[in-house]
Every structure is written in C-alpha cells, then in structure tokens.
C-alpha cells in the first residue's frame, strides 16, 4: 500500500506517494524525474547516487525513502543559484577538468559540497578521503582532487595561485 510522505527537494516542498520499501533514489529519479543523481550499483558501493539529506551526504540508493519525511534533500540540480550561476564547485569541475564521462560527477560534487561545508580548507588527503566512496572509472581522480582544491580556494576567497600550488 502506498503512503504519502512530504519532504523538501532543493528548497521546494514535495509530497509523493511511495511504497514503504522504496529508496530515495528511486523517488528522485522515477517519480520526481530528477535524474542528476545516478544509479551506478544500487547497493551503496559506488556513490553515484550521493545527495544531501539535511546537509549530510548519503547514498540515496540505499536510503529508505520513509526516512526522508520532513527533511531537506539537496541534489545536484539544487546547487546552482537562482540566477542560474554555477556553484563554485561545479565551476571548478568544469574549469579544472574534473569531468570525463560525467556519470560519477553529480555524486562526486555533492560529496565535495558536504566536505567543503564542514572543512573549508581541506588537505589533499582529506579530499581523497571525503570522495573515497565516490567511484570514478574515467579520470584517475587527479583532476577531481584539483577541482575540489580549486573550489575550496575560490569559496574561501584565497587566490587561485595558491590553489594551484596546493
């Protein structure tokens, strides 16, 4: 039997009918058609489905949708500002070549977003640790790490030269 639950997605309140065993990713993709969060494994192993629930990154493919009742969900679609300007992390991934096939990118950016919120000036090791649950099969992570470093520098107002040296 379907239940109705309410939560917010990228600032908008939504009510959806769900089956109790559904996961959050299914609702985001199949019901709300927010296809930015990807399914790479469906078992919480690859991180392609990473979204934020009340600011914390979760693997939405194994996050029970009933748990999201009354909470705030942020997906990749919610990172741009109202005027359509990219978030500095998105901008950094674009400029510093953190994107190849792009299927891991939304999840990767959401993990980076959560990291930089908690730790605005992370070391390289801290970045690698924070995205260790986000598998990327294309890039070898070098330019992803550089993208996050660059975003951190821009967001905290540090100069780009310093970002380059980190």
């Amino acid at each position: 039997m379907k239940l109705t639950i309410g939560f917010s997605v990228n600032g908008d309140s939504v009510e959806v009918e769900v089956l109790p065993h559904w996961n959050l990713l299914k609702v985001l993709r199949d019901v709300l058609e927010l296809t930015g969060a990807k399914q790479g494994c469906g078992e919480g192993e690859c991180g392609a489905c990473t979204v934020l629930v009340n600011g914390a990154p979760v693997n939405s493919c194994i996050y029970p949708v009933l748990e999201v009742e009354g909470k705030e969900v942020t997906t990749i679609e919610g990172l741009m500002d109202k005027s359509g300007r990219l978030h500095p992390i998105q901008q950094a991934f674009l400029e510093k070549a953190g994107v190849q096939c792009g299927f891991c990118t939304p999840g990767m950016i959401m993990s980076a977003f959560a990291l930089l919120k908690a730790n605005p000036d992370p070391t390289e090791d801290e970045i690698r640790h924070a995205i260790a649950g986000n598998m990327c099969r294309c890039t070898g992570y070098v330019q992803i790490v550089e993208s996050v470093q660059h975003a951190a520098a821009v967001m905290s107002g540090r100069s780009q030269e310093r970002a380059g040296k980190e």
């Binding site: 679609e77 990172l79 990219l86 674009l94 400029e95 070549a97 994107v99 939304p106």
Partner: peptide, 17 residues
C-alpha cells in the same frame, strides 16, 4: 573546458539511462 562538462556538472545531461 569541455563542451559536455556544463550539462554534466549540473546534472542535466541525459544519458541513455
């Protein structure tokens, strides 16, 4: 910057899936 990166960083790219 790669032309495809914009749609990919915003989650707008529509893959076959």
């Amino acid at each position: 910057p790669r032309i495809d990166a914009y749609a990919k960083v915003t989650g707008r790219e529509r893959y076959a899936a």
